[in-house]
Amino acid sequence: MAKKLPKRIPYFPGCSMATTAKENNQSLKAMCESLGHKLIELKDWNCCGSSSAHSLNNGLAIDLASRNLALAPKNRPLLVACPSCLLRLRHAHHHLCRDYEARSQYEKTWDRPFDPDLEIIHYFDLLDRVGLENWPSLKNLRGLSFVAYYGCMLAQPPEMQHYQAHRGLMEKALTTLGAQDRPWGYGARCCGTFLSVVRPDVVAPLVDEIMGAAVQAKADCIVTACAMCHLNLEIRATAKRKIPVMHFSELLAIAMGDAGKKDWFSRHIIDPIPLLRARGIL
């Protein structure tokens, strides 16, 4: 896993990053560029199938994800930013590796050989390899306290637990930048994903519990690396006392000197601008 990453990395944004969480997408690209990597969007990518395809039809879930694998350039890793897309694409790749019939079907459909060595990485892998603590000239986030919220992104099905889960990566990176980590017990509690639409009555109390715990931990903000979690925490929190929810990529981009993009923050439902101003970060 310690291979050096190329300057230009093929990138799968996924539907959330491309639409509801553009600020996540833009800050991620800015952050990677500051680290010397350009993210090149996969040409004509399609939806990974989301929760719905594998819920109703496993074959379709594999096929939808496979088309994206077939679009990936050779001998380069494929970077995925959405934890859910990451799992779908990795799962399809894993399935194709173990199933001969599926693999020959893939090769017939996409008219190219299947690449069992394709490395599908998250931007956590990139940060892990870069080693933020060795990075010069980072802006300080001193004064900002946070709770790290991973949602279900650390959880993987049993057969896929060989992928590194990067527990604690956000805490490590942000404390390196001078921010203060507040310990809490809700970092790996699922945000409810699509049940937020279908059963808001179930999800609202869960989100309130998460938000309440973050407030109780005396954090200034919740930091998340998932666009879906970000949305659910923002739209389903009903309690009066709410704290802003920041994309991890936004804070990293700020630390790397890209704080001028107020447009990112005006897309948040819980306005983070007063907090960032008060802490002298914006």
Partner: peptide, 27 residues
């Protein structure tokens, strides 16, 4: 109701893939 968050899979001492079981049952 199961959304496939895999919280259970991570903790299962017997490596049962609950999310996949739910997918199978739905199908």
């Amino acid at each position: 109701t199961c959304v496939g968050c895999h919280t259970c899979s991570t903790i299962c001492p017997q490596n049962v893939d609950m999310g996949a079981v739910m997918d199978a049952l739905r199908q």
